[in-house]
Design a protein around this nucleic acid. Sequence first.
DNA 1: AAAAACATGTAAGCTGTTACATGATTGG
DNA 2: CCAATCATGTAACAGCTTACATGTTTTT
Lengths: 182, 182
Amino acid sequence: MKPPHRTTTLGYALLGLLHQQPRSGYDLRKIFDTTAMVHFSGSPGAIYPALRKLEQAGLIRGSVDRRTSLRPRQVFRPTPAGTRALHVWLSRPVHRDDVIRRMDELMLRFAFHSLLDDEGATASLLRGFVREIDDYIPDLRAQLAALPATTPTTARLALESGLDLYRARSRWARRALAHFGA
Amino acid sequence: MKPPHRTTTLGYALLGLLHQQPRSGYDLRKIFDTTAMVHFSGSPGAIYPALRKLEQAGLIRGSVDRRTSLRPRQVFRPTPAGTRALHVWLSRPVHRDDVIRRMDELMLRFAFHSLLDDEGATASLLRGFVREIDDYIPDLRAQLAALPATTPTTARLALESGLDLYRARSRWARRALAHFGA
DNA sequence: AAAAACATGTAAGCTGTTACATGATTGG
DNA sequence: CCAATCATGTAACAGCTTACATGTTTTT
C-alpha cells in the first residue's frame, strides 16, 4: 500500500491552475515567473517533479500535444480525483494557524475559491478569515504593549507593521464579503 | 578550503537574537514558538543544526552554563566575525526582489536594524523599501487592469488584497521614516 | 546568423519537517 | 506523585534551489 501522499501548497497551486485550463509545465513556469504568483518558484527542478508526483497520485493526467512536431509538449489536466481533492482543500475550514503561519496558502485557496461555484462557501471562508484574524489581533496588540521599554525602535515598528497588515486584511475581507451575499 | 557557507534567513534570525543577549537553543525555540516571530519553526530539528552550522562557520560560540548541574545548558553568543556578518547583512541595499519575494527577510532585517545604531542607515533602508514598493505597485495595478473579463471574482479579489497590503506597507514605511530624522 | 523563447528534464546538495528519544526539575 | 516545563539532540524523509544538460523554433 502506497503512503498517503500529502499534496503540497505548490501541488494545489498547479491543480488549481490546471483546473482553469490544461497547461504544460512550461506554461505553469511562465505563470509563476511573470504574474503575481511570484512566491512560487518557476524553476524546472520544482515544477516537473511536482507534476510527476501529482500524476503518480492520480490527481492529474498528461497528454502529449503536437505529437508530430519535433518539439512536443505535454499538457496536463486534473482527473476527477484531482478535482475532488481540490474541492476538499478549498472547503477546509479556517483555523487559527492558517492566518498565523499559512496565510499564503489561505490566500491561494481563496483565489481559487470561485471554482467551487458556491457563494455561500466563499462567504463562509471569508467569515472564518475575519473571525480568526480578529481573534489574533488582540494577541499582537498585547505583545506590543508587553514589549519592554528597552525594546529597540525598529523591532517595535516591525511588530506594528505586522499588526497593521492584519488590520488591512481584516478590512479587505469585510469588503470582499459584500460580493458574496451573506 | 571550505565552501563559502551561505547564512540562511533562520541563521540571521538566530544571530540577531543572540546579539541582543546570549541564549540557549531552548530559549530561541521558545521565542519562535511564542512571539510574533512565528514564521520560523521552533522545532529542535531546525534550531540545533542551524546553531551548529553558525558555530562551524565561526559566527557564534557556545559556552556551557551551569556546568555543575545535571541539566546543563549551552548559551551562544556572536563572535566578532558573527557581529560583522550581521552588520553586512543589515546594511544590504534594498532590491526589487527583496520586496517581491523576500519580504519576510527584509522585515526581519528591519527589526534588527537598531543594533547598527545608525539612524541614517535605517532611514536609508526605509527609503529603499518605499522606493521599491512604489515602483512595484503600478505593476500590480497593471496586472489587475489586464485581467481578462472572465477572471473569477475571488482571483481578482486576491490580487486586490495583495495590492492593498503593498499600499499598507508603503504607508507604514513613510510613517516609520519620521522616527529617523531624514 | 544570432539571440530569445520554447520545452523538458536530471543531479547534488541544503534546509527544514516530523517523529522519535532521553532525562531533569519544578509546581501543584 | 504526576504533569508540565526545561533542555538537548538524532534519523528519515520531503522539498526546493542551483546548476547542468539538451535540442527546437521563432524573432530580430
